[in-house]
Design a protein around this nucleic acid. Structure first.
Length: 424
RNA sequence: AGAGGAGUGGUAGAGCGGUUUAUUGCACCGGUCUUGAAAACCGGAGACCCUUCACGGGGUCCGGGGGUUCGAAUCCCUCCUCCUCUGCCA
């Protein structure tokens, strides 16, 4: 969430920025937040002054009692009791105002970076880079949902039987390919000096709020009602929340973490025509990279993280393009996002396999994630994350792009992880 | 899961209803001394909110929340976490 003082001091920048997202209520929400905050300050001032007075009076009671002046003490006592009433009602109003302010702030998305183009949706994203040639497939080449049956490596029907749609079972070389990719991604992350994390894959409510899945997106997460825990939709949630309420030492920056986890998404309402096979699942595997940086470094870091992801795709010999998302297509929390899409040759479609974002202070403000700068001032840090990478669509592209009449060729770089060169 | 114990500033650890603006040691930072360092001595240190152009001032924070009281780190309730013992189980 944005800081109120930013709304107050940079009102026009915020409102103009939000308009790039097509965010309709920008004017009214921002102005309402400023107004409530002003009100809040007045109420707090009154309550604080009254508290200061009753603190002094209470101390006086103690002194008078000690001196044996019971009469005078009792007079002050009753005065303090009256002040207490007023303090209590002031605090109730304060609490109410703070709650209302918070609710409004939760509704305001992050302000896009100046370089983010305005736009409504996917059609307004900017293609900033393309790499690799689209492979020519032999006649009769198959989409991945046919290939997995032909070679018996992933079984959706079995998943339906034991869980439901969107929970595939990986078998034999399918399972090993999956495991090989995870190991490859983690090894590459380690080379890039990310510390590996194995976090819990269920999180509490506070963590959901910390990274911004709550309060709005609870419908997208699986929820264990008995224990009040959510299944994570991405490793971003547990990993970034490790730093909730943390004051980082400057010499420990930047923080670089990478983690492999399964991810769970209910995908309520997002099932449609293009979601066959591995294109969209309720459970999938992903390696996520997370960085926490000083504000002045975060955009260099965003580039660095993109290049890391691009390197992975190049090593896997997958043709890809890099998109700068427009305001309307960006996630709620993000100030700037690049998507990486691989070309899946049999489907003849671009598939999103990574999303790399800079949240600036938007998450850090909720998380209370800060450091002390050289002047000794406490400052919010910037958080960033990116998929490196999400597995299912990578698997789909590898299967489709590398198919031959003899079988599916495993990319060179993966062979030491899979232990086999072909799926036949 | 049951019984008992405990959660205090970076850390260790006092305080158990009003001289606490929370003792003190260690660690930390600054200074004196020293060629330099160590030791010694002196001094300083937190977070958040409000107020002020600024100096400063006020408020809140002793695991979280609630209560008793004129006044709570201190008493009561509740939740969380940790430790010990018992039970159960990968």
């Amino acid at each position: 969430m944005l800081q109120v003082h930013v709304l107050r001091e940079e009102t026009n920048r915020v409102i103009d920025g939000l308009k790039k997202r097509n965010f309709k209520d920008a004017d009214s929400l921002v102005n309402e937040a400023i107004l409530i905050d002003k009100n809040r300050k007045e109420v707090q001032k009154q309550a604080d002054d009254l508290k200061a007075k009753s603190n002094i009076d209470s101390k006086k009671v103690g002194e008078l009692m000690k001196a044996g002046k019971i009469e005078e003490a009792n007079t002050i006592k009753s005065a303090v009791a009256l002040d207490k009433q007023n303090i209590k009602s002031g605090e109730e109003r304060l609490e109410e105002l703070e709650k209302r302010l918070q609710e409004i702030l939760y509704k305001i998305p992050n302000v896009p970076h100046p370089n983010v183009p305005a736009g409504k949706g996917a059609e307004d994203n900017t293609n900033v880079y393309e790499h690799g040639a689209v492979p020519m497939l032999y006649p009769g080449a198959l989409p991945h949902w046919e290939l997995i049956k032909k070679y018996d490596i992933i079984d959706f029907d079995l998943g339906v039987k034991i869980s439901g749609a969107g929970f595939p079972v990986y078998k034999g070389k399918g399972a090993k390919l999956q495991r090989a990719l995870i190991n490859f991604f983690l090894a590459e992350a380690e080379k890039a000096e990310y510390i590996e994390i194995q976090p819990p894959i269920v999180v509490n409510e506070a963590s959901g709020y910390g990274t911004g899945q709550l309060p709005d997106k609870e419908g997208q997460m699986y929820f264990a009602t008995e224990d009040g825990l959510y299944l994570i939709p991405t490793a971003e949630v547990p990993i970034t929340n490790m730093y909730r309420d943390v004051m980082v030492q400057e010499e420990n920056l930047p923080i670089k973490n990478a983690g492999y986890t399964p991810c769970f998404r209910r995908e309520a309402g997002s099932w449609g025509a293009h979601v066959r096979g591995l294109n969209r699942l309720h459970q999938f595997d992903k390696v996520e990279i997370v960085q926490i940086t000083k504000p002045e470094n975060s955009y260099n870091t965003l580039d660095e993280m993109c290049l890391h992801v691009q390197g992975l795709l190049e090593k896997l010999e997958l043709p890809y393009r890099k998109l700068l998302l427009c305001g309307g297509d960006m996630g709620f929390n993000s100030a700037m996002t690049y998507d990486m899409e691989v070309f899946s040759a049999a489907q003849q479609r671009w598939l999103e396999v990574s999303s790399v974002s800079n949240f600036e202070t938007y998450q850090a403000n909720r998380l209370k994630l800060r450091y002390k700068n050289k002047e000794g001032k406490t400052q919010l840090l910037h958080t960033l994350n990116g998929s490196a990478l999400a597995l299912p669509r990578i698997v789909a592209a590898i299967l489709e792009n590398n198919q031959t009449e003899e079988g599916i060729r495993i990319p060179e770089i993966l062979r030491k992880y899979t232990g086999f060169d072909w799926i036949k």
